Simulated assay, not measured.
Amino acid sequence: MAQGVCKLLWLRRLLGDLGFEPHKPMDLYCDNNVAIAIAHNFVQHDRTKHVEVDRYFIKEKLDAEIISFPFISFEYQLADVLTKAISTNVFLNSLDKLGMRDIFTPT
């Protein structure tokens, strides 16, 4: 999540340099409710000690309203088609959304 926030900050700065300054928080879609809850909750947890520095960085950007973490169901995560074993329906829907077509279809 911290790497995604870094990339969003870079993209935000690039857009600002090009004259397209974003006026609302940039969305980083996440399909993990626990990760979203940890990012929003500043209370220390025993299970999150190894990610403490990243949590402070993410929380700082959340408080400044630079980023937001809307929840998205795993069925709509387009990156999952490249990284996980998913069902046939989700696979085909993801391919359609990515603009990939059947290479075996005659043209």
Rank of each mutant, 00 (worst) to 15 (best):
S94E: 12
W10N: 03
M100W: 09
L18Y: 03
M26A: 02
L14E: 05
F57I: 07
L11I: 15
F42M: 15
T107G: 10
D96W: 06
I58C: 02
R47E: 00
G4Y: 08
I58Q: 08
I66N: 12
N32A: 00
D27P: 08
M1G: 12
L14G: 07
G16E: 15
L78R: 15
H50R: 15
G4A: 12
E65K: 01
T88V: 11
F42A: 09
A35D: 05
N93V: 06
L92Q: 12
A39S: 15
V43W: 02
E60P: 05
L98A: 09
H23C: 06
L14A: 10
V51D: 03
N93I: 07
F42N: 14
T83Y: 01
D17G: 11
D27M: 00
V43S: 09
D54C: 01
P25I: 11
L98W: 02
I72W: 11
K49I: 03
L78D: 15
D63C: 05
L14T: 04
L9T: 00
V81Q: 04
N93R: 11
R55Q: 05
L9V: 00
V90K: 11
T105L: 13
A85T: 13
I103F: 12
R12G: 09
K24V: 15
P106F: 08
L98T: 13
K97F: 12
Y29W: 08
F71N: 01
I66E: 11
D54A: 01
Y56W: 11
